[in-house]
Design a protein around this nucleic acid. Structure first.
Length: 215
DNA sequence: CACATGATCGCCT
DNA sequence: GGCGATCATGTGG
């Protein structure tokens, strides 16, 4: 097989969690039921934690994008589209939506809003616990590859799954920048909506690190 | 059934 | 800045 499976994942030791992150606390469900752009902003600094053979690995999220469901031409659920692929986006906030793109990459999203409302936050980049500059988690597909996120984890509950969870950050409020989203040229006027958020102080952000001046 | 395309990345110029 | 890899998915016939 040429396509990677979560069960084949060989974690990088640089993602092994350090003792200072062992005390990270969980999110409440209600965190994910608020407006998606708020959740996207507040997920900067949160930790995505993965278990492999009883060892914990993880990374600190530094870049996200909000996708606003049926009114957002960039969202897979635009216009109320509901197909088997998008189904996980319709779950209650706090679940994971994983999709496959370009024949070789996975992307991971955190579902927001109540069940039946298909909005989500794309995880675009994260920092490794040891070396924040390593770049192995910079970009949505590399983030998935480094953490072994594949379709097998699609639909996971990030508050309860044994395999993958999301935990609150413990390092204070980061300085946040806001720009339009990346890679959605087909989305008409929605492509200019300011829905990409990143940690201004992180070296692991994937795309442009400043907003182009208008005109 | 056939076909067009993408929420990307890495390598090339 | 450009382009090829590579295939699941959605759409249309």
């Amino acid at each position: 097989m040429t396509q990677s499976a979560a069960s084949d994942w060989a974690p990088d030791d640089r993602l092994r969690l350090k003792p200072r992150t062992f005390g990270l606390r969980p999110f409440t469900r209600s965190f994910f039921l608020r407006p998606t752009e708020i959740v996207a902003r507040e997920l900067i600094g949160a930790w995505l934690v993965r278990r492999h053979e009883n060892v914990l690995y993880g990374a600190r999220i530094v870049e996200t994008e909000a996708y606003l469901g049926s009114k957002d031409a960039a969202a897979h659920s635009f216009g109320g589209r509901r197909t088997p692929r998008v189904e996980a986006m319709y779950r209650e906030g706090g679940h994971l939506y994983v999709f496959f793109v370009y024949g070789m990459h996975y992307c991971a999203n955190v579902v927001t809003q109540r069940e039946g409302v298909a909005e989500a936050v794309l995880l675009r980049a994260a920092e490794a616990p040891i070396d924040s500059r390593a770049g192995l988690l910079s970009g949505p597909a590399r983030l998935c590859k480094a953490l072994g996120i594949t379709r097998e984890l699609n639909g996971s509950d990030l508050l309860r799954s044994k395999q993958i969870r999301l935990l609150r950050g413990n390092a204070g409020v980061p300085r946040i920048a806001v720009t339009p989203r990346i890679g959605i040229d087909y989305a008409g006027s929605a492509k200019e909506w300011p829905l990409r958020f990143f940690d201004l102080d992180s070296p692991a952000v994937s795309g442009p690190t400043r907003l182009k001046k208008a005109k």
